[in-house]
Computed example of a mutant assay.
Amino acid sequence: MPISRVTKLYSVQDAKIAPLTSDPSGGPAVYGTSIDVPGIQEMTISGEIEVKQLRGDNTKLATNSAITNIEVAVTHAKLSLDVLVAILGGAVTDSGTGSTEVSTWDLTSSNATLPPFKLEGVTPPNGVDIVGGDLHWVLHKLTLSAFPDLGFANEDYRVVSFTASADPLIANGKWLSAVMNETAAAIV
């Protein structure tokens, strides 16, 4: 018997980004190594639908709707230079040794590529109605839709956030997946 298709959603425990490296027609999409989104706080998925109505004879004759956009907004507690590279482009350079070690992320006119990426978030175990289960939201092909919120906050923590728009994969047409597991599974 299949598991229930109805559940509560409680919290978000983990999220990872993976660079999309290949999206061939008819072939499987290929992703790079997953990168942790540190201190994930919120992942909000929304969409836009365009509605067309056909009118004639002084009445509505038909309605047709189409999804025109799916967008995700992500807020996380800690800055990750590797996440910035995966969603915005740029490059990280490590230098120095011992107490003089430095990691520098540089965004230049030639490396600000806005690369496509996958985002997957998951509830904690028991964050769904299935005891010991979880739910994963997967957005298969995203591109930033606005520059990330970065910087500092006076006498407070500064959280990081970004928004991205989804496109369907060329490989299989997938935009968004909700995967409910009877047994909680880590993001790969």
Rank of each mutant, 00 (worst) to 15 (best):
Asp149Pro: 01
Ala15Asn: 07
Leu20Phe: 03
Thr123Lys: 02
Gly132Thr: 12
Asn64Leu: 09
Ala29Cys: 08
Ile87Asp: 09
Leu79Arg: 12
Tyr31Ser: 09
Val138Ile: 15
Pro28His: 10
Ala146Cys: 01
Thr21Met: 01
Glu50Lys: 11
Gly27Val: 11
Ala164Gly: 12
Glu101Leu: 04
Asn126Ile: 03
Arg158Lys: 14
Pro38Leu: 00
Ile87Pro: 07
Gly121Gln: 07
Gly32Glu: 02
Thr113Phe: 04
Ala77Pro: 08
Asp156Phe: 03
Ser109Ala: 14
Val128Arg: 00
Asp149Phe: 00
Leu119Met: 04
Leu114Ala: 08
Ser11Ala: 14
Ala29Val: 06
Ser65Val: 04
Arg5Gln: 09
Val83Lys: 00
Ala171Lys: 03
Phe152Asp: 14
Ser25Val: 12
Lys141Leu: 11
Leu9His: 06
Ser34His: 01
Leu135Gln: 03
Thr59Ala: 11
Val92Ile: 15
Ser25Cys: 06
Thr97Cys: 09
Arg5Trp: 00
Asn69Ser: 15
Pro148Ala: 02
Gln13Thr: 03
Lys8Gly: 11
Ser46Cys: 02
Val30Glu: 15
Trp105His: 07
Ala18Ile: 00
Asn111Gly: 10
Thr63His: 10
Pro124Phe: 08
Met180Thr: 12
Ser4Glu: 15
Pro168Met: 08
Thr75Gly: 03
Asn111Ser: 13
Ser46Thr: 12
Gly56Trp: 11
Ile45Ser: 06
Thr63Val: 14
Thr113Ile: 03
Ile70Lys: 13
